[in-house]
Simulated scan of single mutants.
Amino acid sequence: MAAEHHAPANATEYIQHHLTFNQTASGFHLDTFWIGLFLGFVFVGVFAFVARRATSGVPGKLQNFVELIVEMVDSQIKDAFHAKSKVIGPLSLTIFCWVFLMNAMDFLPVDLLPWLANHLFGINYLRAVPTADVNQTFAMSIAVMLLIIGFSIKAKGLGGYIKELFTAPFHASGPVGTILLAPANFLLQMVELIAKPISLALRLFGNMYAGELIFMLIALLPFWIQWVLGAPWAIFHILVVTLQAFVFMMLTIVYLSLAVEDH
């Protein structure tokens, strides 16, 4: 049964209310999951629609827009990824578009989706920006880490990847030196591997969480001044939303490029 809705009494309760997830008893964030899934289907649906209706003649505005995104992603891959892979293109395009759509949920009025969820479905809590949930950003970054390991094994073989873990970045000329340096090399390799998903996740989460919080603070102001502060911040936030999606995509490409290179 949905909890009864109570309007927040003050600014503190208002912010706490908007920062509370709609979650199950076990702590699973339903709003993050369903909104992220819906936006994933939006991305797939739009691109599939454009692909089916693509023409070699004069393209429409939507086809032009999609082609612009594809060309941008393709140029970044050519500059940063120097191996051959059938996965890197679709992966990079999916990351950029999906993260952008999740970030862009921050442009909706702060109270809109929670109000609709409460009045239509009796849901008391709802957070509309999946990337402002550290669970979502860590899930994506852990997937990138698994891809790094997979790309490394595919490029170098399982034996070659394990050998690299114990022989790079420090190299020794003889077997004794190699054995002595193996623990240090392995430790540094693990630190590097673990640092990548942590930096990916926290960078995206921190920027989107801060943006979401600023929109909440603006919503607490009188209506006449909300537009004065909200409009400039929303315009600036367009850059933040796009840049964070681009950075997540580019770092993924760079990490996977490094994974397939021999040290």
Rank of each mutant, 00 (worst) to 15 (best):
V58C: 00
A195F: 08
G211R: 01
S199W: 10
V134N: 11
I179R: 04
A201E: 10
F43V: 15
L165A: 13
S141K: 02
A259M: 09
T20K: 15
L37G: 06
T32R: 11
V58H: 10
L91E: 05
I35D: 08
I225W: 01
L200A: 02
V241Y: 09
K156F: 05
K154W: 11
L188C: 08
P109D: 05
V73G: 02
P175K: 03
A9D: 12
S75Q: 10
A155F: 01
L220K: 01
L180K: 12
I148G: 08
Q16K: 13
V58P: 00
M1E: 03
I238Y: 04
H5W: 14
M72F: 13
F41W: 13
Q189W: 10
A104D: 11
M249E: 06
S173K: 13
V46E: 02
V240W: 05
A80S: 11
N10S: 08
L256E: 03
P90W: 01
P130L: 13
T178Y: 00
L68T: 11
T32E: 12
I214T: 10
H237A: 10
N103M: 04
M250K: 15
F186P: 03
L101F: 14
A51D: 14
R53D: 12
V144N: 11
D79L: 14
V134C: 12
H119Q: 12
H263F: 08
M1A: 11
E13P: 06
A139T: 13
S257F: 01
Q189A: 08
Q76C: 10
E164N: 09
Q136W: 15
G36E: 09
V50R: 06
A184F: 14
I253Q: 01
T55P: 07
A117N: 10
N22G: 07
P130W: 11
A3I: 05
E261N: 07
L202G: 04
S92R: 05
P232S: 02
F151W: 08
K61Q: 09
A184T: 13
G40N: 06
L158M: 09
W227L: 06
M105Y: 11
A231F: 11
P175N: 01
D74W: 08
L146F: 14
T178D: 07
I235N: 05
G159S: 04
F138A: 10
V110P: 02
I238G: 08
H171I: 14
K78F: 01
E67N: 15
H237S: 13
A219F: 02
S141Y: 02
K61A: 15
H17W: 07
E212L: 06
E67V: 00
I194H: 00
E212K: 08
L251W: 14
N103R: 06
G159M: 05
I253Y: 05
L193G: 07
E212F: 09
P169K: 04
A155T: 00
L108Q: 07
G122K: 00
Q16S: 11
Q76H: 13
T12Q: 14
A11S: 15
F47N: 12
A11F: 04
L180D: 00
W98P: 01
T24W: 03
